[in-house]
Design a protein around this nucleic acid. Structure first.
Lengths: 122, 122
DNA sequence: TTAAGTGCACTACCTATATAGTGCACTGTA
DNA sequence: TACAGTGCACTATATAGGTAGTGCACTTAA
């Protein structure tokens, strides 16, 4: 797995797990990879995956059963979507607009850039 | 000065200096605060401001004169604007669109959110 | 000439992050 | 019962980031 330099690895692993819960790859009450297995898959130390899972467990996104593994909590998907949408609207978008203003990019300009990017996704 | 937890302090100090060059508060060939003075202003250790200035010097944004202080380079403003616009268009906006897609926010929805944010800025 | 302000090179210490490795208790299965 | 897989608690090491403090060479102004 490729990691960016802007965030800690254990945070990116946690975000990736959340992505997979959101996309339905990991289902609620379903088992997710063990700390050792995931460490092997993404190419990090088991301690790092343990740390990533510990954070998600603290957030109530996953839970553990000693000797069995980690599982996705009930309502995890909804929680993730709610939290992320909130962050996107209250933090990401305002910062984007602030930066656009600093760079003197007008609303129309921004709109055109976004339109192109939306088309690329299809 | 308030610092976010997502970036290192010396990076945020460097970004702030760039902001002030872009806004015209620091003019080209003009002197900027000394490492000790800036450390006192923003409330950090002098070593941290030295590190921030060292990065900007490496980028050619500022230069030093031993015993006198740090000064803004010729063409610094243009360089900063060019770099930031590039980063904004090639990294920030694509990530914003990707996140919007993950959250199933349509182009029209996004447009409305942005329109509101643009109005708030006025 | 003297003193204040400056860049800058040090040392020391602390925390967070990440890796490497060992060991143990618990679980389900052969 | 034995064993593999699991969570989990350790120790040790390394690097980046940040603070704290000292000292020295250079520049400018009193």
């Amino acid at each position: 797995m490729e990691f960016k330099n802007t965030k800690s690895i254990f945070t990116q692993i946690g975000d990736d797990v959340k992505d997979k819960i959101m996309e339905g790859e990991y289902t609620e009450e379903g088992k997710i990879p063990s700390t050792r297995e995931l460490a092997g898959i993404v190419g990090v130390n088991p301690n790092t995956t343990i740390k990533a899972y510990a954070v998600l467990q603290q957030e109530g996104i996953i839970y553990t059963q000693r000797g069995k593994g980690y599982f996705v909590s009930q309502g995890a998907k909804e929680t993730i979507i709610k939290d992320r949408k909130e962050e996107f609207l209250n933090e990401v978008l305002p910062e984007t607009v602030e930066q656009a203003n600093k760079l003197e990019i007008s609303f129309d300009e921004l709109q055109n850039y976004l339109k192109d990017l939306y088309h690329e996704e299809k």
